[in-house]
Amino acid sequence: MFKWIHRFGSAPFVYRFAGALAPWIGFVCLAILLSGLYLGLIVAPEDYEQGESYRIIYVHVPAAILSMFVYVVMAVASAVFLIWRLKLADIVAQASAPIGASFTFLALATGSLWGKPMWGTWWIWDGRLTSELLLLFLYFGYMALRAAIEHPQSAAKAAAVLALVGVVNIPVIHYSVEWWSTLHQPATITKMGERNIHPSMGIPLGLMIVGFQLLYAYVLLIRMRTGILKRESRASWVAQLPEVNNTMANSKLSGTNRV
């Protein structure tokens, strides 16, 4: 058992494992997203309160859930990196940041598009939207700090500390903002979240959430492979990979002039 776990600390193994797993995850992800879209856009009935506009829920809620989920993954990976010095955990954290930021942006954009018909304005300082905005700033801060520190080892450690500080603060920030928004807007319009959801709407929503999660897994696996290749570029196992050491294809490369 421990031997099995230990293999996940070995870069060549993870590189090959991720390469073998990614196409399958990508395929299942596509199938689930398409069936979720079919059930959500065509089969599911319209909402009796919000009409057809509620269908934005099928992209807004998965994006919002993933935006927070990815940050938690990033923080857990950072903790693993700081405690056990596992380089792979740092690769996971680094690879997750841009994906999480893109989901956060998506949650904000679709939330704003949903807000226009529901609230009558593109932006409202609603507790959840404001929390998402602050989460986006946290992602930007993480990526900016990583980019600013030249020494790769200290960049990894400093970014990990920041991710942990962020994850500890997220609940505090979230509840402060919720409290603040109820203070300033006593009559907020509730979204779907507070009501019981009918299975004809719940099943497509569940499918979309799983689909988004698989998409995150797929992109994460590819980004991890990229990270491993970049960090281990001098290792002999990289030079021996069939996709790298292909004499037929490489003969083309050797002919060209490079700087």
Binding site: L134, F137, L138, G141, N169, I173, V177
Partner: peptide, 21 residues
Amino acid sequence: LNQAGVLLSLLVLPLSVPVLI
């Protein structure tokens, strides 16, 4: 770091929101 001041603000401002509120 170079330009530490701007980066520092970017890192700390979201964390200081509860105190501000």
